[in-house]
Amino acid sequence: MQNFYIKSVVWDLTFNLESDITLEIVYGGAAFRICYNARTLAASPYALEQHHELYRILYKDDPDGGFWQAVERLRKPFEELMTQMAPNPPIELTRYLHSYLYPPWFILEAGVAESGRVQPYFKAALSRQEFGRPGEYITNNFLQPYLSPLLNSKLNKYSSRQVQVLAQTPQLVPSRVLVDGTVYFFKPWISGQVHGYHELQSYRKILADTEASPPLLADARICRLYGLIIDNDDDVLQHYPLDNGEEGHSGTRLVGLLLTYIENRGTLKDLAPWSDDCTNEDRLRWSGQIHYSVEYLHNAGVIWGDAKPQNVLIDMEGDAWLIDFGGSYTPGWVDEDKQETVEGDRQGVQRIDAWLTKWSRQPVTRIKRSGEGEGRRQGGSVEGGKEEGL
């Protein structure tokens, strides 16, 4: 039985009992915007009183104070209508990526029935002008300097219509995907995020080194970029009508990245503290592999950036992979004035060693570089060590 996933709940942050309340919900291959308007509900004293009660709970914003119960009470009257309107319940995991990125959007509104209770209504379908398009236009002046070298490289480019979704996160974001017979991890592209541009720059350097002879990074266990997902608006937004015959802006957008997919046991943060999950030999090996991969990154002119245990993934064979090349830093692992530098990476690695030592019966000091002399492994990495790239 598919769940209704609540994407967002919006209300006035300045206390106002007459505030509208808006829910955005994903269900059955469609997205719904549910609008509660206090002026409309004023036609029924009972409905308005319920609205005021639910607003007070939302305003407190306390998960332990009935917040999610209030959200459920707001959603419940629309359940039957959403079930009727959803084009494809339940979601089949064999669908293609474009149907996840561009679901039909429906606007629903709370009216008042003769009984005085809330009556759900269908108001409209979202038009192309209103639809929030994922990704970022490739002509964007901020994106261009980072994306152009990749567009001009041998890197594969795909449409979301070519990408088959095999699995998704609990938030209904596609994660494991299939393209041309190969399984990858799908990472959505978020417009305007500085760390995304930094990440593209890192992947460009890694790609350039990988294509060099001999590549410096051949044996490093690091995240790699294998493809770009680029969509044309006119192709993927065909089911979104234009308002009043007006011409809509269309173009080509970067909507996601394809990273190598790898089965994993969790992050270093998840595993290292627990004796049941690892041994001291494991911790020593992981430290050595981290040192080895970071050194090879630096030799190729790439900065790891946000060095910390959460950004080390442990695969099913017990090997450590570096993930997340978006830059920035995490206090306690890398100092702010050393972020995105070689010095900052080394500081982060030293602090990871110290952290591993705390969980070991022997110091993590002189580390054998266990990656040396080993053959190149197939597989890859994830972003964030959990859902992204899992």
Rank of each mutant, 00 (worst) to 15 (best):
I303G: 00
C223T: 13
G192Y: 05
G288S: 14
G318R: 05
N299D: 11
W286Q: 08
I230A: 02
D233S: 11
K308N: 06
P309H: 10
I230H: 01
L268C: 08
W286T: 03
S191H: 12
W321E: 00
I262H: 07
A218M: 15
P215K: 09
H249F: 15
K205F: 07
L228H: 02
Q193P: 11
H239R: 15
R265G: 03
L313C: 09
A220E: 01
D231F: 03
D231I: 01
V302F: 05
G301K: 04
W189F: 11
V194M: 14
R285E: 01
A218C: 08
P214T: 15
R224P: 05
D282Q: 09
I190G: 01
W286G: 02
I229P: 02
P241I: 11
L216P: 00
G288R: 07
W189L: 08
L284A: 10
E263F: 08
P309C: 05
N280K: 07
D234G: 08
D277H: 11
I190V: 13
A208D: 13
L259P: 00
Y292R: 13
I303R: 09
Q238I: 02
Q289C: 08
N311Y: 08
G251D: 07
W189R: 09
D319P: 06
A218F: 06
Q201T: 10
L297E: 00
I262F: 07
I229V: 15
R283G: 00
L254Y: 05
A208W: 11
G227V: 11
K187R: 08
D234L: 15
L313W: 01
L268M: 15
Q289K: 02
L259M: 14
G266S: 07
R283W: 03
D243P: 14
L254I: 15
R253F: 10
D277C: 06
C223M: 12
E263K: 15
I262C: 15
G251T: 12
S191Q: 15
L200D: 05
E295T: 14
A218H: 13
S202M: 08
W274H: 15
N311I: 04
Y226V: 00
L258G: 11
E281P: 04
Y197S: 08
L242K: 10
C223R: 03
G256N: 03
I222D: 00
E295D: 13
A218Q: 15
P215Y: 12
G301P: 04
K269D: 12
M316D: 10
Q289A: 09
L242T: 14
Y197L: 14
S213C: 08
H249D: 11
L237I: 08
T252M: 04
D243S: 12
I262E: 12
G251M: 05
I229C: 05
P309K: 04
I230R: 02
L242Y: 12
